[in-house]
Design a protein around this nucleic acid. Sequence first.
DNA 1: CCGAACGATTTTGTATACAGTATGCTGAGA
DNA 2: TCTCAGCATACTGTATACAAAATCGTTCGG
Lengths: 226, 226
Amino acid sequence: MTTQPLKAALSGRVQRPVPLRETVYETLLNLIITREFPPGRHLVESELAEQLGVSRQPVREALQRLSNEAWVDLRPGYGAFVHTPTESEADQLLAVRAVLETEAARLAALSAEPAQLEHLRELWRAGVAAVSDADVDSVVTANADFHRGVIEASGNRVLAELAAQVDRRVRWYYAPIARSRGMASWDEHAGIIDAIQAGSADEAARLMNDHTERTRLTYHDQVDGG
Amino acid sequence: MTTQPLKAALSGRVQRPVPLRETVYETLLNLIITREFPPGRHLVESELAEQLGVSRQPVREALQRLSNEAWVDLRPGYGAFVHTPTESEADQLLAVRAVLETEAARLAALSAEPAQLEHLRELWRAGVAAVSDADVDSVVTANADFHRGVIEASGNRVLAELAAQVDRRVRWYYAPIARSRGMASWDEHAGIIDAIQAGSADEAARLMNDHTERTRLTYHDQVDGG
DNA sequence: CCGAACGATTTTGTATACAGTATGCTGAGA
DNA sequence: TCTCAGCATACTGTATACAAAATCGTTCGG
């Protein structure tokens, strides 16, 4: 009879059971991002624990991590609440994101490897296809993927982690009003890739900065204009 | 008889007992930063709990936060270890810090209020005095304070929080080799303040960038040169 | 009718107990 | 002497139990 360890060894790695807090964290974050848990919602440890079929402890640890990352606010002695972003906070996040992604583009131009460039091209093609198909969800995903691609191509892991977090929060804040800028956005993406490939750091940075700035203005138009 | 709430009201704020995990977190972080817990040290929950006179739970929560902020590495099923920074990681952090502080300087030039400017001048005077006294510890502290001052003057809280964290880690990494650049550094600081006061955003950004870049080179010289 | 104080309820904060897993050691066999 | 299996140990992962704090509704007094 085939033993379990053997099967695991043959199939590659033995998958270690991920700590529950991790699973809980990702589950809760997903619920928040999808707005199943809307901003302001009161999250009770014992309720969540029961719903997820675990004890309070992992839930608690997940909530604290979410609190550190500003997804929820912890009120001592009372409970956790899904964070409600203010307008100025959202604006500040946009500014920070612009800075980080601009720097990422600059670094990518200085250090991106051929494989990474090909990856970017691939992501770009997927985005263009999504726009052509007018598939809104795919466009949003493709956009996030492309930006993550650039960030990772920077070769700076610290920057990448920071930017990824900021980016995720920005997309959450602006998800309700996020509408694609359509093909124009992907033309700009193409220009950024070209600059990265050419190793033109300043040009790549400038293009990314312009790009994020236009996106910011689009957001503001939609906020102000309804 | 005077009631408790009244006394509290008279003395100003009712001081709420800070959650233990917070106290533990700060205690541990201090021990790490001061190198009483050197990089690579194995941190055992039960040991720390006993030493601090609390249960494992708050210690655990503090360790997880420290892990999220990259101060310690958590090995599942085994233990927590004080993070050992690699050279490339330190370098990447320096780069990120430069970006964040440069942007902070730019924003400060656009939005700093007179009170904040006066505060910066004050910090500057304290720094110059420390340099004159050749008081190394004071110089280091004054330097950190000045940079924090600029960051806060940016008016961007998100940026400030990020930059503060990055800054703290950078100072930890380079603490063993950190030597003051002396008065030259404070001359540059003065220039930055002037640019901020004048509202010259690009100039302030450029000066801050040059400043952090020079500091980076100093670090590298000390690393390479011994 | 309004406001403040009191009590019940809810929820977190902390401690303890138990189970699961990684590690290192010991000893036997080649 | 080297290697590997098996065991003992140490530590974390998870669950449960108890204590303290904050909130909310109610009631009493004006």
